[in-house]
Simulated assay, not measured.
Amino acid sequence: MRSRVVPPLRDLPPRRPAPPAPDDSVIRWERIDIDRYEVRAAGVTVGFIDVVGAVFVALAGARYDRAVEALQTLDFAVAVEAISPPDAERPTA
Rank of each mutant, 00 (worst) to 15 (best):
M1T: 10
M1E: 11
R2C: 10
R2K: 12
V5H: 15
V6L: 14
P7D: 13
P7Q: 10
P8D: 11
L9E: 06
L9F: 06
D11N: 10
D11T: 11
D11F: 08
L12N: 07
L12Q: 12
L12W: 11
L12K: 08
P14K: 04
P14S: 04
R15I: 06
R15L: 07
P17V: 06
P17A: 10
A18D: 03
P20N: 08
P20T: 08
P20I: 09
A21C: 11
A21R: 08
P22H: 09
D23F: 14
S25A: 15
S25K: 07
V26D: 14
I27D: 07
I27G: 05
R28T: 12
R28V: 10
W29S: 04
W29P: 03
I32Q: 09
I32D: 12
D33C: 09
D33V: 05
I34S: 15
I34D: 15
D35K: 11
D35N: 15
R36L: 15
R36K: 13
R36A: 13
R36G: 10
R36W: 13
Y37I: 04
Y37S: 02
V39F: 06
V39I: 09
R40D: 07
A41S: 15
A42R: 14
A42V: 05
V44Y: 12
T45S: 14
T45Q: 02
V46A: 03
V46H: 05
V46F: 10
I49W: 00
D50K: 04
D50C: 02
V51P: 03
V51T: 07
V52R: 13
V52T: 08
V52Y: 08
G53R: 01
A54M: 01
A54H: 01
V55H: 04
V55C: 04
V55F: 04
V57W: 00
A58I: 00
A58R: 01
A58L: 00
A58E: 00
L59Y: 00
A60Q: 06
A60C: 06
G61P: 03
G61M: 02
G61Q: 01
A62H: 08
R63H: 11
R63S: 12
D65M: 04
D65T: 12
R66F: 06
R66H: 09
A67Y: 02
A67M: 02
V68D: 05
A70D: 01
A70C: 03
L71V: 01
L71M: 03
Q72G: 07
T73C: 04
L74T: 12
L74D: 12
L74W: 13
L74I: 06
L74R: 09
D75S: 13
D75C: 09
F76M: 03
F76E: 03
A77D: 14
A77T: 15
V78T: 15
A79Q: 05
V80E: 07
I83E: 00
S84Y: 06
S84R: 06
S84E: 06
P85N: 02
P85C: 03
P86I: 10
P86N: 10
A88K: 07
E89K: 12
R90K: 14
A93N: 14
